[in-house]
Design a protein around this nucleic acid. Structure first.
Length: 259
DNA sequence: AATGTCAAATTGCCCC
DNA sequence: GGGGCAATTTGACATT
């Protein structure tokens, strides 16, 4: 009953490859692989005991391995106009697509819809059989979209209406895209984490460098400058120099010899 | 029974 | 005009 989907995807990121597989009845989550330091595993947390073991392996360039969970979000933002009032949609009086009309006979032959259901007028939701799903999956692996000829042939093979095949492919593409987006989101989230950590590290390093630089400058102030040629101590507290203590005293050969 | 999830199906828009 | 897509609705099924 549950549909088994298997995706193979290459993300646009360099050095990033992933294998996706999921059970159609479960939730999608992205998390770190517990036994890998460089991999990211995306899993659909199974909601059924019978669900297949899904997995996604994602090789990341970095060594980040934080555990993150992402909910299967549906609100990706509305590109079109606001949703129509609920009363308007899904009325029985629908304009049939050409496909539907053409393959009305095929539908009748299909053993999955009884005459009673047809007569009732209510939309009876079709659930594809395992065989139908797996064949559709196979075809999807070959081509993510179909030309009319392929559609017709596949519909005939599956004993479905071409429109149903078309819809299945549409929804399948949508699911693939959604998953890809989620994986990319997770990748970017991890990149962000890595960069934030790197920034923090560099800031600390800079702070330490500034501290040690200040310290060494202070030490220099306390060591009296000495002329390398005449070995005379120039300035410094012990010479009774009039220089203010706060000013750093460095040996200036020009100033000394010119005097 | 209520609720949640998933996938089939619909709608409306855009682009070629 | 037809196909693809995004957004949405809806029904089937699972879980609590």
């Amino acid at each position: 009953m549950a549909m088994d989907d298997h995706d193979r995807d290459d993300t646009p990121h360099t050095g990033l490859s992933l294998t996706l597989s999921y059970d159609g009845r479960s939730d999608l989550s992205i998390g770190s692989r517990p036994h890998s330091s460089s991999g990211l595993e995306l899993q659909r947390s199974s909601s059924t005991a019978k669900a297949l073991e899904p997995s996604l392996t994602l090789a990341l360039p970095g060594d980040v391995c934080a555990s993150v969970e992402v909910e299967m979000g549906r609100d990706i933002g509305s590109r079109h106009s606001p949703p129509p009032p609920p009363t308007q949609s899904h009325q029985p009086c629908k304009i049939k697509r050409e496909d539907d009309v053409r393959s009305e006979e095929v539908e009748k032959v299909s053993s999955r819809i009884s005459d009673e259901e047809e007569d009732s007028g209510a939309r009876k939701k079709l659930r594809l059989t395992k065989e139908q799903s797996s064949l559709l999956e196979d075809k999807f692996k070959e081509h993510s979209s179909l030309n009319p000829k392929q559609k017709q042939a596949l519909a005939k093979q599956l004993n479905l209406r071409p429109r149903q095949v078309e819809v299945w492919f549409q929804n399948r593409r949508a699911r693939t895209k959604l998953k890809k987006t989620e994986v990319e989101l997770e990748f970017l989230r991890r990149c962000c984490e890595t960069l934030t950590e790197e920034k923090r590290r560099l800031q600390k390093e800079l702070q330490d460098l500034e501290k040690s630089h200040k310290l060494s400058a202070t030490r220099h102030m306390q060591i009296p400058a000495m002329c390398p040629s005449c070995k005379k101590v120039i300035g410094g507290a012990e010479t009774g120099s009039p220089l203010p203590a706060s000013r750093p005293r460095f040996f200036n050969p020009f100033a000394h010899h010119a005097a």
